[in-house]
Amino acid sequence: MTTEKLSPDEINGLLGQGAEGKPMSTNTLMQVEKEALTELLAVSLGGSSTVLSTLFNEQAKVSTPTISIKRKDDLLSATAAPFFVVLGEYTGSAKGIQILSVNKNDVHMMAKAMDAETEAVDMEKQFQMLQEMITAMFASVTQSMEAVLEQEISYSLSGMDVVEKQKDFPVSKFTQEEWFVEAGFQVKIGTTDQADFHLCIPVPLAKQLVGILTNDAEEAYEEEPQQMQYEPNNQTQSTSKLRRTNEEPTIQSVQFSSFDETASVQSEPNNLNMLLDIPLQVTVELGRTKRMVKEILSVSHGSIIELDKLAGEPVDILINNKLIAVGEVVVIDENFGVRVTDILSTADRISKLR
């Protein structure tokens, strides 16, 4: 039996720690980290639906993302070529790059949706539309992140390009990281159109965001973003050319006042006025009920579904699916309407819209 003792480095290695006793960096996320990151992205991306609805002039909705861990060589493999690729950078409390991809056909569809009066959408218009969309979308995303994480985070768009073949986009040109988190999500526009997006960030950046969220942030991860300049593989005969934005947008967060029962709503009118032109969905809910699948399948013309509200009971008035007031149904000329009979306090109403 040997009496040789293990060195401190060997002990730390067995414990999964570095030379200074700190946890070693891993190339994946634990399940709890995946769940936390999914929740953060779902809230942040979902919050951009209102901005996108304004851009497309019809209702837009962002789905809950599905995340996976991939090597950089397999990055963007889920996006069918040819596709647009958008390189961005996070600064502030969270630092690192972001790679976003979307199929070329989806970009063409969104460009048509944004400018329905234009019959032909050329490549230049597609670049302009995508730049405007991503800039506005991630200004909203980072604003939501700041609210959740209570940290300053900014996003800037660094460049865009069209990739004709998967191997034409060398990820190693822009980052030395080997492992990435890829989040797939959909943007649904109206009732029929849908675009598939894939968002990729390095695992260390993902861990930093989760660390801030769980009040257990690791050391700041900072990577100098490389200039988005590369030459496509000559054998592919790709004609794609680099499209850089003319100028990087300045993104600032809106500081909201704290509202309570006694606070004055007009204490900071300038901040509130910035939100007055944002469209909100108003819903009057007559009632709800739950039914078994077999009961739903048996529904036919003339079927009657009983709701959970009594006749004459006030109906709920919701703003963006949040209860704001109750009222009674009335008839205005030939249209239905609702007369408000009871509302939440002004402070509570504004608080629910935040």
Rank of each mutant, 00 (worst) to 15 (best):
P232K: 03
P232V: 05
N233Y: 06
N234P: 10
N234V: 12
Q235E: 15
Q235R: 14
T236E: 12
T236F: 06
Q237D: 07
Q237H: 11
Q237E: 12
S238N: 08
K241C: 01
L242S: 02
L242P: 00
T245D: 01
N246F: 00
N246D: 08
N246P: 00
N246I: 00
E247Y: 02
E247F: 02
E248M: 11
P249A: 09
T250F: 07
T250E: 10
I251K: 03
I251P: 00
Q252W: 00
Q252K: 07
S253P: 02
V254F: 05
V254Q: 04
Q255H: 11
Q255E: 13
S257M: 10
S257E: 12
S258A: 14
D260Y: 15
D260K: 13
D260W: 15
E261M: 15
T262F: 08
A263M: 09
A263V: 11
S264P: 01
V265Y: 07
Q266M: 14
Q266L: 14
S267T: 12
E268W: 05
N270P: 00
N271R: 09
L272E: 09
L272M: 15
L272Y: 11
L275R: 03
L275A: 11
L276P: 02
I278H: 03
I278L: 11
I278C: 07
P279T: 07
P279D: 07
L280S: 13
L280M: 15
L280D: 03
Q281M: 15
Q281T: 14
V282Y: 10
T283I: 08
T283R: 13
V284Y: 10
V284S: 05
L286Q: 09
L286R: 08
L286I: 14
G287F: 12
R288N: 14
R288A: 13
R288D: 10
R288K: 15
T289C: 13
K290M: 05
V293R: 09
V293E: 04
V293H: 06
V293C: 02
K294S: 14
K294V: 06
K294Q: 14
K294Y: 12
E295N: 09
I296E: 08
L297M: 14
S298A: 11
S298F: 00
S298L: 05
S298Y: 01
V299M: 08
S300N: 10
S300H: 08
H301V: 10
S303F: 03
S303W: 03
I304Q: 02
I304E: 01
I305H: 02
E306I: 11
L307M: 14
L307C: 07
D308I: 01
D308L: 01
D308N: 11
K309C: 09
K309R: 15
L310Y: 10
L310E: 14
A311Y: 07
G312N: 09
G312K: 07
E313N: 09
E313W: 05
E313D: 15
P314A: 13
D316E: 12
D316G: 03
I317E: 03
L318Q: 13
I319C: 13
N320F: 01
N320W: 06
N321V: 01
K322L: 06
L323F: 10
A325R: 04
A325E: 04
A325I: 02
A325S: 09
V329A: 04
V329Y: 04
